[in-house]
Amino acid sequence: MTAPTGTHRTDASAPPSAGAPTPEAASSTTATDPAISAAALALGDDALVLSHRLGEWAGHAPVLEEEVALANIALDLLGQARILLSQVGDEDELAYLREERAFRNLQLVEQPGGDFAHTIARQLYFSTYQALLYAELARTEGPFTALAAKAVKEVDYHRDHAEQWTLRLGDGTVESHTRMQRAVDALWRYTGEMFQPIDGITATHGINWTALQELWDTSIGETLRGATLTVPETPRSDGWTAGGGRQGLHTEPFGRMLAEMQHLHRSHPGATW
């Protein structure tokens, strides 16, 4: 039997393109400012958790073409997560060894997939937010400019995918309309949280979160109305609505998701894979 050597992982693959940040070569840019680290963690956790949720669809998608599409989106997000987490520390330690309360993702992205309509509603809400935010990050000079410039192209496609499906489910059959409206309504309460300012971003990129929310409202309103759906009017901030993911307060399904995601890694402390 071969003695355990504990050698470190070596990546044989060369980065696909020079210049743009890649998951395989990102650790050189570890951030030191705590506010910027916290911001990287917030954005990175969003991408990490949503990619995990999308990965749950593998082998379950409604049509084969959609297996390929959902996996593409999951891979884009996972790539973004790896770059962002690597700015803060070791990507695997952060993903696999943090407790639930240390995660900074939005509650929206941790919501279980539900039916395809729930997945599309979650994608629509999040990718619209991410597309608008990353466009701003790419446009302004700051710690996330390079990442956002690359990611915004991916995210625009995610948004388009979600919009196309929202149209088809909303304006498809009676059943699909009912399901889509239900999903849009159910996830609405998780959307207010997206516009809570992230300090490390506000301070460096000067993002106007109120303006961001207005753009989001306009875009989502157009898409939903175009899909013959009703824009929910229930509250989505303050009071008893959701929100707290950025402070490490999550919903019950998230703990179970982490238990599954982290179990194997935690069972072999110090192992390399």
């Binding site: 990546d11 395989e24 990490l48 790896r82 993903a95 599954e260 894979w273």
Partner: peptide, 8 residues
């Protein structure tokens, strides 16, 4: 997929 032990 949901239990893969590293992000890579």
């Amino acid at each position: 997929i949901t239990r893969a032990p590293s992000l890579r």
